[in-house]
């Protein structure tokens, strides 16, 4: 059948829809107006996935396990694995590198000084698209708390056994976490000798954040392998948490030097996370 070229009326509709699409795109990039729809769809997608899995794959797997008399062993193994991952997260929290709390006495002092009377929450990974590390500037994951929380955890710091990975930006059924590598994420950092401060932004690539500075203003010499810590200036992340090491220095021009900092934390390291709100 011969197709006719679009008549002028239809061309106007095309033009209108393209402008409408452009407007929607502009609004979505610059505001969070469509976040509810996206989060709702994500929640639906995750719930459907788990629902279907629980009625299709899981019974088959359970039957198989039961048949092989290994289900008890597998359950115990899962519990041990969860407990081990939980202990890794807790270990990080009380480790020497972390300044969350060093020991019980330090914890009590911190509680008194900073009103840190809030507990930390354990959370489980619900959704992570690994493609984001290869294609996109927007690096987000979704987590779900294992215990109920009545307080708002927006801007709560999320960490796993390898270190701080980001902070919560939205909360509905699941909490949306903006990772340190998201290009719209900004993290105030400093070097160990505390004579260099900058705001590191996400690089859009996994494991790296980028810090730009003007060498005419800051004359500090940078060395590869230098450690960087959080400065605590942003008000979200606590001070003196190890973030990563300097891996590359790029001179963009006479006014701009770019530092590539390799993060010590990796969100793919474990499926359990700690969430703490300062």
């Amino acid at each position: 059948m011969t197709r006719i070229s679009p008549p002028p009326g239809q061309k106007i509709i095309y033009l209108f829809l393209i402008f409408l699409g452009g407007f929607i795109l502009y609004v979505d990039i610059n505001t969070n107006n469509f976040q509810i729809i996206k989060n709702g769809f994500n929640s639906f997608q995750i719930s459907t996935h788990f629902f279907i899995k629980s009625f299709s794959i899981d019974p088959i797997m359970d039957f198989k396990n039961h048949f092989q008399f290994k289900n008890k062993l597998i359950k115990e193994n899962k519990e041990l694995h969860t407990a081990l991952e939980k202990s890794y997260v807790e270990k990080y929290l009380i480790s020497q590198d972390s300044k969350f709390f060093k020991d019980k006495k330090f914890l009590e002092e911190e509680l008194d000084q900073n009103n840190l009377n809030k507990p930390f929450y354990m959370a489980q990974l619900k959704n992570l698209d690994p493609n984001i590390f290869n294609c996109c500037d927007k690096h987000r994951i979704h987590i779900q708390l294992l215990t109920k929380s009545n307080e708002s955890l927006i801007e709560g710091v999320v960490f796993n056994s390898s270190g701080v990975i980001g902070h919560i930006i939205h909360e509905m059924n699941y909490k949306e976490v903006m990772l340190l590598t998201d290009v719209s994420h900004s993290l105030p950092i400093k070097n160990v000798s505390e004579d260099f401060y900058c705001n590191a932004r996400g690089s859009g690539m996994s494991d790296y954040i980028i810090c730009n500075y003007n060498p005419l203003i800051s004359i500090k010499e940078m060395e590869i392998g230098q450690n960087f810590l959080t400065s605590g200036f942003g008000g979200i992340y606590p001070k003196d948490i190890k973030i990563g090491i300097l891996e590359d220095i790029k001179v963009i021009d006479s006014n701009n030097i770019e530092l590539n900092i390799k993060l010590s934390s990796n969100p793919l390291d474990s499926i359990l996370f700690g969430v703490i709100n300062f």
């Binding site: 699409g21 452009g22 407007f23 979505d28 469509f34």
Partner: peptide, 8 residues
């Protein structure tokens, strides 16, 4: 992805 991108 962002709304409107594929639509356009």
């Amino acid at each position: 992805s962002y709304f409107g991108l594929s639509a356009i």
